[in-house]
Write a protein that binds this DNA or RNA. Sequence first.
DNA 1: ATCCTCCCCTAC
DNA 2: TAAGGTAGGGGAGGAT
Length: 976
Amino acid sequence: MDGDHDPEGELFMDEEEDEPGPSHHMDPRTVSPELFTEEGELTRNREETSFNTRESTVGESRNTVEAPMVIDPDQPGPSRPPVDFALMNRWLKEGVEEEEIQGNDGRRRGAAVGWMMEGRGDEKGQLRSFGHYMRLKKDKLQHQVNVLGRVRQVSEIFNGISIFVNGFTEEDQLRNCMAEENFSTRIMPPQCIIVPPALELRSLIQAHGGEYHVYYEYGTTTYTVASEIAVVKRSKRRKNEVIVKPELIVDSVAAGRLLDHKDYLLLPDEDEMIRRNGATISQAMKKLTEKAEEAETRGEKRQAALDARDAAFIDEYYARSRLHLISTLAQEMRDYVSSLRDANSCTERARAEMNERLREGRGEGGNTRSLPPSEKAVFHLDLDSFFVSVTLRNRPDLRGRPVAVTHSSGSKESNGFSEIASCSYEARARGVKNGSLVRDALRKCTDLVCVPYQFDDYRSVSKMIYDIIASHTLELRAVSCDEMYVDATSMIRSLDGYGIEGVVDARCSIGPIIVANYLRELIREHTGCPASVGIGPNPLVARLATRLAKPDGVKWIQEREVEEFVANQKVSDLPGVGYSTLNKLSEIGGAEMKCGDMRKYEERELEVIVGKKTSHLLYRMIRGIDKSEVVVERVRKSVSCDINYGIRFTKDEELQQFLASLAAQLEKKLLQARMKAGAITLKVMVRSADAPVETPKYLGHGRCDTHTRCGRLDPVCGDAEKLVIEARKLMTSIKAPVEELRGIGIQLGRLAPSNSAARPLASQLNRFFAPKKNGGVMEIIEKEKEEEKEDGRKRPRGVRFEEGVDEIEDHRRPIKDFMAEDVDLPTRMHISSSDLRSQSLPVSQKLSFLSEMKIPRMKMKIVELMVEDPSPPLYGPLLLHGWALIQRGDLPALMEFARATISASESSFIAEGWRFAARLICREWEKACSRRYSAVPDLLEREEGKKWNEIVEGVWEKEGEYSIDIDVSMTTFPIM
DNA sequence: ATCCTCCCCTAC
DNA sequence: TAAGGTAGGGGAGGAT
Ligand SMILES: Nc1ccn([C@H]2C[C@H](O)[C@@H](COP(=O)(O)OP(=O)(O)OP(=O)(O)O)O2)c(=O)n1
Ligand SMILES: [Mg+2]
């Protein structure tokens, strides 16, 4: 936290909650819509409350509003009332309109409030959002309900339950409600906002089948509802009185069933406390510590790191964390594919085999639809319920039954707060989802079979599917451990059965479906796991098709079907459209909207709702447009470690120690990535003020506020000692009480290769080079080569400088011509010698591995560098080394270095892009020289017979500041 | 304008 | 008990 900032303000943003910004757009950070689940914790807040930015339509719906609370977010089926988002939005708007009185006098830097829980149900659970909306504006809504006297029973959630509300008289409550008319002037403790006044609780409980007691009735009143301990303390606590927070009522309504009151106790229940390891920090800690000490004094080997205070915790935790595993696997697979590509891994053998096999069996079934010559076939391949499938290989007895992979055995002693990583389709049919809590899942599906993880197997299966696909083609993009895109176009065309001379015979040709089935069968053979494949002309359509293909199937949407197909897909099924986006969109069309229904909106209309980029993407997606390529090589931009589980510190030393462990992990990761970091960000989760100290989920983070601080690492750094020093500084600046910490993460950014170069420069260059990976440039090379062959002469290229002639021949063309259309290129770059000096070491020293080598050795070293595609870490050092030579006036060295670079780029092992990149680099050196020396060396040796020494004569001793302005809008390309 | 910080969102 | 990670896109608003 900032030193000048009131910590309360960090945690309680409520006063600002409902103040619209100047643009009538609320700052998402200031709102913490919260949704309680039965566990009494919050879902991860994924909502931006921009729904109140629309023009109000006051009046038209007011009288139709009913208490709409009986929605079970997890209960599918016809019994579930549909949720009308538009209607909800309208209610909320009414509220907002009245509150739009005050401007926003500057935003306070505050914590993000509202973290979550309740499992991350994979489904985009729009229905959950009701609780969320209600939380936000329920005061208003309920006030209306009351005033209108509409307390009408709509459910039986609270049958047999009665409440007494302690704390305020009804008169107080009424006044309270009035005061709520203007949130911005309210000066009340933040809890008051989320505590419905008594009147509202009354209507809530009555509407849902419960009783409201005006006075506490011994033996009859089930719960006393109170929001502040102070209030309860004022009056004596009655015997057997169960005092709960009002959230019990609100959340039960939101969840559509009576939740466990134990999660909502205002005061710790003594028995409960002991059973749950205590409800206060000290008790919880004592208990945990005792346990550990006990084990130690008994001389036992410590079996498990209990929480983050243990030195072995991170390793232990990582060994059991599925999310860590799938993140790691995804990264590993991306690296693996990229290494195969670098190694020019062979695809001929497997393709030949496929060719044979398919020839034998061709013409079978109705799957012979062929790929039109003009159409692409992108595959989206995804294993069916991956983790479950792995288990089923050795548990055939479980086939056909609802199965879930989870840490919990599902037995009695489990609390059921364990998450389900993956569940079988039989379980899904009963409403279970990946990410559900075991407890919820068991309620829906009592015969659910819980099976443990098999981490090692996931890794090996994952590797196998990548091996299988990559042996056929390298035109693939690794998405996750069980999911990838494959551009199968060229693979299919290369098959004998494809057709003759592009003339495709629909009856006998081998089309995408046959190929997909062949690959699926290979995967099943080798891994025992079923895979599904969606096929489309682009990645988007392929991905959407996969949903229909599953389980264990293929679905091909052809170009001509795309428009209609996409029109019928739910917006919520679009990649990138999650919970929050969906809610924003609900404002203009309802939650169940199909892509086709969305087409009536202009891009501009969408932009107001979901933002610039998202609207652009959305506008195209709902039309099935996706120009992205399957193969996109990306440079990693960050490395991070987050742990938001098991964080329970009592002492500062424990925290400091933990930061050191995190830093050690990061050091490992950086080393692996051969990177150093130029920026560091610390993120902490701090228990929300009103969240219970002990979370329902054992050692979970519970509901938290998050705080982030970042700093620079100058010079770039990769070692744990320095990282931890910085992390500790950031931690101090956040000023969170150690015992309230629930999660800690460190992100490292501004990555630079461990052996090199200035990052800002590299990042600009990266933007410059990246687009070539989209295939555009290489295709152009091929095409122009062809043309030149046909014409029998080379087209003039580059810039010709004639001595003594002012006129220069400029054959350069805008580089944009060669780039994928969406790329936004800078037109100029400015680099000065101070950029070079900003490094802590002189550049030449830093790059000594280059400059001290003799040319042949140097070339080998460069070749090594060029095994990978051009990327900032790789061309950064090359470019800078050249500049350093120019700066020193060592032009002969520059010449040799340029030769080595070009020559390396022409050797057969190197990544294709370097043929282009190396020459571009040389061009930049030439321009640098032309600025500094008013002479242009012909580094690319275009001009026959022109001697280097003639050009550089007399410029050896020049020194001093230089800077260059690189025109990156033009290129001499193609040079080769 | 553009960059930087501190978030939020999404996906597996 | 339970193992709620991680990387990238993106936006708002202040700093430059
Ligand atoms: N919330 C989640 C989502 C996924 N996973 C893991 C387990 C899954 O098996 C694996 C792959 O995720 P998918 O989204 O592909 O889901 P499945 O493969 O389980 O099912 P399917 O692809 O058939 O829908 O990632 C997880 O641990 N937690
Ligand atoms: Mg899958």
